[in-house]
Design a protein around this nucleic acid. Structure first.
Length: 478
RNA sequence: CGGGGUGUGGCUCAGUUGGCAGAGCACCGCGUUUGGGACGCGGGGGUCGGCGGUUCAAGUCCGCCCACCCCGACCA
């Protein structure tokens, strides 16, 4: 049950986040450092995220499978950049059945290697391609500093791994999945992410190019919310994934991978939450409508409950509905409690409502009395459906407005350093890692992505002044 | 691994010159309450991070160790 008062965002955003995760009953700290326990309410949110993504994966021809959690150490060493990228954060199993193992096994930090190995056995002919497999699971990365959902030692995610006959096809897949993530984030999460390409220094270990959706949190910091990688033939060469083409010539295949994790829960929390608590987008909320019965005594109880039960049944046909039957708590407490948990819509049913054939309808996105209205019980399902749609749209509109207010198109280095203190900077960039490094050194801001959506043209690099062909976002990131 | 800090009930913490381990919240019971975070009474719960030392006596003083948090380097 939620305790009173949350630290305000403006006072300490980080503290606000830590408190909300626990007070909204999403997750708890596990006994192992950096690991989290996802509690039922948090997991229900993740399940809705999974369902929304899985539906899109299936619709684009992908299938699910499961690969093992343990990977021979030697596999990681087959791709040079990959092992360099991951070796510092590997958890390694050295013993099994009471004996020291011949070869240590790593707990997967990601599955390119084990899946690549299997694909090399499965792929013989162009007729075997493409392979479009996704897996839902968890991975382990021994991170130095952890935060619930944002960076935990073990996290849950999906990782798609595909194999293609041509680079064009593999690149199209990479871009298709990036767009799938964008569509999911915007339409279901109401998180207005910006899709784009990572710079060389920010890309995934072993990738030819990495693509990302970047979201702006309410403290204006950026959160990488999903990634899609094009590997070219790098992993195919490392794992010997070859096929005979139509001309009977042996070719290395082209591979991709793409992932979105429980970090997205953090994105939802930090995109929509306010000082009252969580604010969940209706399409993903585990509970879309909570009904709070209000009564003083047994007489009022028996007056109110039949109406509550009828509404629960009617609304339950179309929406995820919960009735708060907890005894001994005042309505006021329950209102605050459900606001903390981010339930989009609350219905109050008391004796006065029974008499007037109405209910009180309270919107989470308009806290307090402002969001409360009295509507007829007649046609309530339709009212609820329309209101949930309005809330979903309102959350997105609010997040877009916040994002756009905090993006600054900058032309000078002074403007850049100023902008990244209060939001994101969008600027011409020549493409050199030295210019990125200087900004990071001076401001702690990193390049987030080269947005897909930018007008063609050229300008001068905001750092060094040399000619630049692309604009890039600089921001402080999680 | 560098710099700083903290370890006392489930949580947040108090604990004076060393002298019977406490409060608030949470939890359990009973009663009164209930349309924006109710109240009264009663109750359960702690090897004071660990080991060793000083002392008649250690949460408190000393030594060593461990864990966690914050700031850096690394990261979905």
């Amino acid at each position: 049950m939620a305790e009173e008062k949350l630290t305000p965002q403006a006072e300490n955003f980080s503290e606000w986040y830590n408190q909300i995760v626990q007070k909204a009953d999403l997750a708890d700290y596990a006994p192992v450092r950096g690991c989290m326990v996802v509690k039922p309410y948090g997991w229900a949110l993740w399940e809705n995220i999974q369902a929304a993504l899985d539906r899109r994966f299936k619709a684009t021809g992908h299938v699910n499978a499961a690969f093992p959690m343990l990977i021979p150490m030697s596999f990681l060493e087959k791709e040079k950049e990959h092992v360099e990228g991951f070796s510092p954060e590997l958890a390694v199993v050295t013993h099994g059945g009471g004996e020291k193992l011949e070869e240590p096994l790593v707990v997967r930090p990601t599955s390119e290697t084990i899946i690549g190995y299997m694909y090399s056995k499965w792929v013989k002919s162009y007729r075997d391609l493409p392979i479009l497999i996704n897996q839902w699971g968890s991975v382990v990365r021994w991170e130095m500093r952890t935060r619930l959902f944002l960076r935990t030692a073990e996290f849950y995610w999906q990782e798609g791994h595909t194999v293609h006959a041509t680079s064009d096809e593999a690149m199209a897949e990479t871009r298709l999945m990036l767009d799938t993530y964008r569509d999911f984030a915007v339409e279901d999460g109401a998180v207005p992410v910006i899709p784009g390409r990572k710079s060389e220094s920010e890309k995934f270990a072993g990738a030819v190019s990495s693509w990302t959706i970047e979201g702006m949190m309410r403290d204006t910091r950026a959160l990488q919310s999903g990634t899609s990688h094009y590997f070219g033939q790098n992993f195919a060469r490392a794992f010997d994934i070859k096929f005979l083409d139509q001309n009977n010539e042996l070719q290395f295949a082209y591979t991709t991978s793409w992932g979105l994790s429980t970090r997205f829960v953090g994105a939802i929390i930090m995109t929509h939450g306010d000082d009252q608590g969580l604010m969940l987008p209706p399409r993903l909320a585990p509970i879309q409508v909570v009904i709070v019965p209000i009564y003083r005594d047994d007489a009022e109880h028996s007056l109110v409950m039949p109406v509550v039960e009828r509404l629960q049944k009617e609304l339950g046909e179309s929406f995820r509905v919960h009735v708060d039957l907890r005894d001994g708590l005042t309505p006021g407490f329950k209102f605050n409690d459900w606001e903390m948990r981010g339930v989009p819509l609350r219905i109050e049913v008391g004796p006065k409502d029974v008499e007037k054939h109405s209910v009180a309808l309270a919107r989470r996105d308009r806290p307090g009395k402002a969001g409360k209205s009295f509507v007829p019980q007649e046609g309530l399902a339709q009212t609820v459906g329309e209101t949930l749609k309005e809330i979903q749209a309102a959350l997105l509109a609010r997040a877009i407005a916040f994002r756009d207010e905090h993006i600054f198109a900058v032309r000078s280095y002074a403007d850049l350093t100023d902008a990244v203190q209060k939001g994101w900077a969008l600027a011409w960039w020549c493409g050199s890692p030295e210019c990125e490094a200087k900004v990071k050194e001076d401001t702690k801001a990193t390049t987030r992505c080269i947005p897909l959506d930018q007008e063609s043209g050229d300008g001068l690099c905001v750092v060094c002044g040399k000619p630049a062909r692309e604009k890039i976002y600089f921001a402080r990131a999680y």
